[in-house]
Write a protein that binds this DNA or RNA. Structure first.
Lengths: 345, 345
DNA sequence: CTGAAAGCGCTTACAG
DNA sequence: CTGAAAGCGCTTACAG
């Protein structure tokens, strides 16, 4: 009673007077074993409190039922929702999620990947830290299938084969910009994000595309960088009004930035949704609940999480080759934050 | 080249002309092996791209380096931060996080626990779904150390030994209520939360304590339930004004509820922070950024995550017994959402 | 349908 | 310091 011995198939087999193989067949639901035998075995397992040791089984079968999920920033609701979607889909298919957080540090991410690889996951879902080098990732993951989410890696393509799931950043920003132009705005800024990140670059391109197509010019002082967070966006908001031509609207890098900007505007005596128009990107839950409600692009991170899990499991289970990048369209949802041009001086 | 054989200690041993035991000693950093031998082995491992199989090692050593983390709602920033803190602390101590999400469903939680148990985690950190029955949890976790976070389980104490980490809900709500009383409010409501949840009950008790101590009465219609989310709180906000004595302030179940209420007040033409006072609970990042900034209680979920990880690892590594419940004090932070009584009719 | 044997990749005494 | 042997808990052919 003291030495807490784990109960194994051996114990069950002995108690039932059958061999270990038979117990194993019961465990795996084989039709080979007689239903009476099966029932006896199952009752004995319950009686002794047997719990399957999947690690041992996986070792013997040379398979894995874990998937590593490496997240850059779990405190960002966008990625938390994504993670939740991944876990939901993996769980539904009998896989277990090995979680690792990089907190946007490529060094930490490398450690996390190394540590998770020791568990030989069947696949890896990587929402990379900013400035992740594809060659670093390639070195550690070996030939484990990888799907990269949301951001492209630096030096991508240098022989690191992986799936990619991302949003149509360019198209989304185009939609947002076109929407503001339709509303009558001509002096439109692009606000927030780190200019070196692939998603920011793509969104800026979409913005430029739409501006160019409408024959509108883009002023340098209308391209304002910020960390992709509410706090920094709020702090940087006055930069929008430092030039001589003040914009009447801003396409924001994402919702967090847009909400931060709205707050900053309020501090400057401007009323977003009345005398300044703002759009976001992502449609986080707060977007619909803000005052004014935020016009934004629906990215549905939870669905993206399920999708990433499905992509990676398809590769694992059907040994399919790497697919071309999977770029998900985003849909504009109009709310009250993007009115017609108002009384901005 | 085709049959992707995994490289094992055997391969390394053969290539170096040593035994598997020697390679194993190198892996585990034993001082027993000569430094030249060690170096040869390490180089060979690098050359062949060896990756340690920790599952095999754990099986042989009869230990585990994984900890199961079961989260009720990852899309809630409070729990996402908590999860992030757990992962950070576990990773720092060489453990890996097995993630599972219950999405507030006790049934799903049971499945998740069952699935995670097959990996024989060293410990379990459980942020339980509402209405989780302690006996269900006890049945599946066997003698694995468990720390329960944030909410008490139903039928707790019936022989299910576990650690508990929670917030001082009662004390926190007392502080918030006392703060409003100090500001001059007398008609104070308690708004939001599910009345059957332990945390809501405790917070309501703290509220009643403070009201009673100040000789103020609590009216039934001032106890308003809601789901602990922004959306539902917003929808339920008019219930505050259905009675004949309208409150001038509300102690809210948590920040999400407080933010939702503020929005609902705005829809009713009330200006929170000017003619109605509101307090929250948790201090989520949005709290400081809202308009008006939310007076609330600092719970620091990320630190709580690290703390939960430390608690559980102490039990695992030093085989310490279950501790008494660990109730963390919370600190009031005063912001602009809780002014003196205003012009409420 | 069931049993005996081998083996997944590692570690642990036990000799030398 | 190193080698040979046994074993963690399971599964997989292979016979019967």
């Amino acid at each position: 009673m003291s030495a807490r011995q784990r109960v194994t198939v051996e114990d069950i087999a002995r108690a039932c007077g059958v061999s270990r193989a038979t117990v194993s067949l019961v465990l795996r639901g084989s039709p080979l074993v007689h239903r009476d035998t099966r029932q006896r075995v199952e009752e004995e397992m319950k009686r002794q409190g047997y719990v399957y040791n999947r690690a041992a089984a996986n070792l013997r079968r040379r398979v894995s039922n874990s998937v590593a999920l490496v997240i850059n920033d779990l405190s960002n609701p966008f990625f938390a929702e994504f993670a939740s979607g991944v876990d939901e889909a993996l769980g539904g298919k009998g896989y277990v999620t090995l979680l690792g957080c990089s907190n946007e540090s490529p060094q930490r991410q490398q450690q996390v990947l190394n540590s998770l690889m020791e568990h030989h996951p069947a696949a890896i879902i990587l929402s990379p830290a900013e400035n992740t080098d594809a060659r670093d990732v390639a070195r550690v993951v070996g030939n484990t299938p990888v799907v990269v989410f949301n951001r492209m890696l630096d030096h991508d393509g240098d022989g690191f084969d992986h799936d990619f799931l991302g949003l149509d950043n360019r198209g989304g920003a185009m939609q947002a910009t076109a929407h503001l132009i339709e509303r009558g705005h001509r002096d439109i800024a692009f606000f927030g994000g780190h200019a070196h990140s692939s998603s920011c670059q793509e969104r800026r391109e979409g913005y430029r595309d739409a501006m160019g197509k409408a024959g509108l010019s883009v002023r340098d002082e209308w391209l304002v960088e910020s960390a992709p967070t509410r706090v920094d966006a709020c702090a940087r908001s006055e930069a929008l009004f430092s030039g001589k031509t003040r914009p009447t609207a801003a396409v924001c890098y994402n919702d967090a930035v847009a909400l931060g900007l709205m707050l900053g505007l309020a501090h400057h005596g401007l009323h977003p949704g009345i005398d300044f128009a703002v759009t976001g990107f992502d449609d986080i839950p707060e977007a619909a609940m803000s005052m004014p409600a935020l016009t934004t692009l629906v990215a549905d991170p939870r669905a993206r999480g399920r999708q990433a899990a499905d992509m990676v499991l398809r590769r694992v289970e059907h040994a399919t080759p790497v697919s071309p990048p999977n770029i998900v369209p985003v849909r504009l949802v109009e709310r009250t934050s993007s009115p017609q041009p108002g009384s901005v001086p």
